[in-house]
């Protein structure tokens, strides 16, 4: 018990990094994902091709590789990001690709007839999207969106490769210093706590949205 209290401060400072990556990624990737998913339905084939190519690359290569490329690869080409910004950038463009596919699924599940009905009723295209389509889409995608968010909680541990000290690295340090597995146990518990909070928040959102289902 004493030992846990001793290593807790260093783990909590690692937790700050984990949470930082998590929140910045969510804030950045949700709007980008929406834009990308709308772009996939563009009437211009060049835009569709570009976006499909982007999603193919982002989902087709490991996030770890993308992190290495954004930080070291771009650094060699003269585009130098600081460590944290590089991690956020890589996470945002990666998660936006996954989220865009989820949003696309949501958009497609709204029947065409609703667009036509809205047109007949005199709604503009912007009004149709924000007042009629988006509220339904949000309800539909909450469960799969939650999946990605929980994945993100754990994926943040990949930032070790560009030298950022997240909670798992803090656990690694304590484990190799004190030659024990207990820090990993504590790190696991903290991850569980984080995903529990995320799960509860998502359930609540889902319940609230279900009022007008």
């Amino acid at each position: 018990m004493n030992y846990l209290l001793e290593i807790l401060p260093s783990l909590l400072s690692g937790l700050k990094m984990t949470l930082g990556v998590f929140f910045f990624t969510i804030i950045g990737s949700v709007p980008l994902g929406i834009i990308v998913s709308l772009g996939m339905k563009s009437e211009y084939f060049t835009i569709r091709w570009l976006i499909n190519g982007y999603i193919w690359v982002m989902r087709g290569t490991p996030l770890l590789l993308q992190l290495i490329f954004v930080y070291y690869g771009l650094g060699m080409m003269g585009v130098t990001f600081p460590r944290f910004e590089a991690a956020i950038f890589a996470f945002i463009i990666n998660y936006a690709a996954y989220l865009a596919e989820i949003f696309r699924g949501g958009l497609q599940s709204v029947p065409r007839g609703q667009y036509e009905a809205a047109k007949v009723l005199g709604f503009t295209r912007t009004q149709t999207f924000f007042k009629i389509i988006l509220p339904q889409v949000i309800k539909i995608i909450v469960p799969s969106f939650g999946n990605e968010v929980i994945n993100l909680v754990k994926d943040t541990s990949l930032v070790y490769v560009i030298g950022l000290g997240d909670i798992l690295r803090a656990g690694n340090i304590a484990a190799s210093r004190d030659v024990t597995l207990i820090p990993y146990l504590l790190v696991g518990l903290i991850y569980l706590l984080m995903t529990a909070i995320v799960t509860v928040l998502l359930r609540r959102t889902e319940k609230r949205l279900n009022i007008w289902r």
Partner: peptide, 17 residues
Amino acid sequence: IGLDDTFVPMGFRDKNG
């Protein structure tokens, strides 16, 4: 200076980080 901060006893972190 770059270091692997798990590398005892050459360079690592104490319990306060």
